[in-house]
Design a protein around this nucleic acid. Structure first.
Ligand SMILES: [Zn+2]
Ligand SMILES: [Zn+2]
Ligand SMILES: [Zn+2]
Ligand SMILES: [Zn+2]
Lengths: 146, 146
DNA sequence: CCGAGAATAAAAACGATTATCATTAACAGC
DNA sequence: GCTGTTAATGATAATCGTTTTTATTCTCGG
């Protein structure tokens, strides 16, 4: 359907910059969903010199190509994560630590298609996000770290 | 079924301001999901004098009490709509005109609970939005304005 | 009619994201 | 290994939806 047709004129297209690899490394090591600014801070913490603009630009490209997944936290901020599978899936994310479980939703996909068809809608895309408390943070209900 | 059920605790709580009723009227007449700024513009168009701040504040309260539903459009902007049913439901919204169909998702609810339980997550909340093209805007499939 | 307090609204603040643009540096060719 | 081309970078400014601030207005009970 949405086949990519990259017309890369010979080998001069994607430059192997150290920023790109540093970002890739950070994304791989970060366990859960993080905001662009958190990722930027993490890179700084590692001693890498990567500008915030570059972080944003790379994350945007990576998300467009499907290399990273994006979700919106309840406040609207975009969170990024490098995911294991490239097939369509959704996420169950902890509100406290950001750790995330990838969930497959055959049932959701079918439901979405069904209700869309019944309403006569076409080109329907869906957003499905699950937020909760992971097992580690479900333990003590009364423990706001503040 | 569209009866108002104000749960206002007697006395000094909700004042009968003209702005509130103007906003309520606009919300009732607007067919689909609109942004706060669109609603504000609509009120201005009607000759009502309502500040943007007031629109935001009322929409926030109304969404908290469940009187209006909110979704986030793909760009992150919050859209509001007065919905028919007060029970939990989701929306199938047209990307072009904003017209929306309320869809009930027993299957989704069960799926969400199931995957949350399997992962050991608690206090799980879900966001499910469907965006597509309504029957009226599905007409010409080949029409990229670019 | 008066006054306390809620409601309003203009303007300023806020914060995440994007655009700008001068500078840097990766890579192909020499 | 140099060098030039040119994509990539990143500090800064701009954008824009939303929130906060604050002075003013208005509602409503007495
Ligand atoms: Zn994922
Ligand atoms: Zn899906
Ligand atoms: Zn609704
Ligand atoms: Zn639901």
């Amino acid at each position: 359907m949405t086949q990519e047709q990259d017309q890369q004129p010979r080998g001069t297209r994607v430059r192997g910059t150290k920023q790109a690899s540093a970002l890739a490394s950070a994304l791989t090591s970060l366990p859960g969903f993080c905001s662009a600014q958190e990722i930027h801070a993490e890179l700084r913490r590692r001693g890498e010199t990567v500008g915030l603009t570059t972080v944003y630009r790379h994350l945007q490209v990576l998300s467009e190509t499907g290399a990273v997944d994006t979700i919106r936290d309840p406040s609207g901020e975009i969170l990024y994560r490098q995911c294991g599978s490239t097939v369509h899936h959704h996420h169950l994310t902890c509100r406290v630590c950001g750790s995330s479980v990838e969930v497959e939703g055959r049932a959701v996909e079918q439901w979405a298609e069904k209700v869309a068809a019944e309403a006569g809608f076409t080109a329907v895309d869906h957003t499905v996000e699950l937020f909760g408390l992971c097992p580690g943070h479900s333990a003590s209900p009364m423990e706001p770290p503040a």
